[in-house]
Design a protein around this nucleic acid. Structure first.
Lengths: 118, 118
DNA sequence: CGGTATCCTCTACGATACTG
DNA sequence: CAGTATCGTAGAGGATACCG
C-alpha cells in the first residue's frame, strides 16, 4: 500500500496514507471553517476595517481569537494588514483578491442558513 | 444593555448578550464546518451509501468520527439513516432535501479550493 | 456489518491582565 | 489603539478493543 509512517522528534508516530489526504472540500473547510474565520472575512467585505471595530462587530469573539484568525488569513493571503499611522497607532485589515473570491461561497452559506432558519 | 448573566449548577457564570449571538454565516459554519462534516455530505450526493463504504471513502476519519458526524447530521435532518436488513445488518445513509440544498455551497467551496490550488 | 466503550492527549478557546 | 502574555479548562478527536 501507498503509505508510510512518519516519526517526529518526540518519537510520536503518524501513519500517512496517500488516499487519506483530505479532498478539496475538506481542505477548503479547514481554511474557512475555523471559529469566527468566515465571519471575519464577511465583515471585511465592504472595505478596510480597524482591529477594534472588527472586535466590536464580532461581539462574542475575544481579541485573542480575532488576532489569531487575522494572522491565519494574512498568512494565507486572504487578508492584508495595513498600518495607517504610529502614535496613535492605527491599523486596518482588508480583503485581497483571494479574500474577495470567497464571498460567493459565504453568500451561498448565509442565504442557506437564513432560508431554512438555521 | 440587552444582556444577562447565566449561572450554571457549578456556579460558573456566563455573560449572554443578544448582540453577541452569532450571525447567519457563523451559524452556518457551525453546522457544516465541523471536521469531516462537509465531506460526509459531499460523499452522499450521488445516493445512499453504507456505513463502511463511507468510512472507506473518508480514509482519514475514524469510525467514531463518522458515526458522530452522521448522528449530528441526522439530528439536523440533513441525512436519513435507513436499515435495509438485520442479520447480516445493513444500513445506508442518504441526504434529505435539506441535505441536498447544501450542495450548492459545497460545490462553490470545492471549485474555489481547486481553482486556487489550496 | 455497524457500531460502542474506554482511555488518553492535545489544543482550541475563554478570561484576565499587561504593554508600547 | 492594537495587540501580547499567561493561565486554566472543556472537549474534540485519535487509538484500540470489544459487541450484537
Amino acid at each position: 500500500m501507498d503509505s508510510r509512517v512518519e516519526t517526529d522528534a518526540s518519537g510520536r508516530k503518524t501513519v500517512v496514507d496517500a488516499c487519506m489526504e483530505p479532498c478539496a472540500i475538506e481542505r477548503g473547510m479547514r481554511i474557512l471553517g475555523g471559529k469566527w474565520t468566515a465571519s471575519v472575512i464577511y465583515h471585511l467585505k465592504d472595505g478596510p476595517v480597524r482591529f477594534n471595530d472588527l472586535a466590536r462587530m464580532l461581539g462574542g469573539a475575544s481579541k485573542k481569537m480575532i488576532d489569531q484568525r487575522l494572522k491565519e488569513l494574512e498568512a494565507r493571503e486572504l487578508v492584508v494588514r495595513k498600518v495607517l499611522s504610529d502614535r496613535p497607532i492605527a491599523v486596518t485589515y482588508e480583503l485581497t483578491g483571494l479574500g474577495f473570491s470567497t464571498l460567493k461561497i459565504l453568500e451561498e452559506l448565509r442565504s442557506w442558513t437564513e432560508k431554512y432558519e438555521l
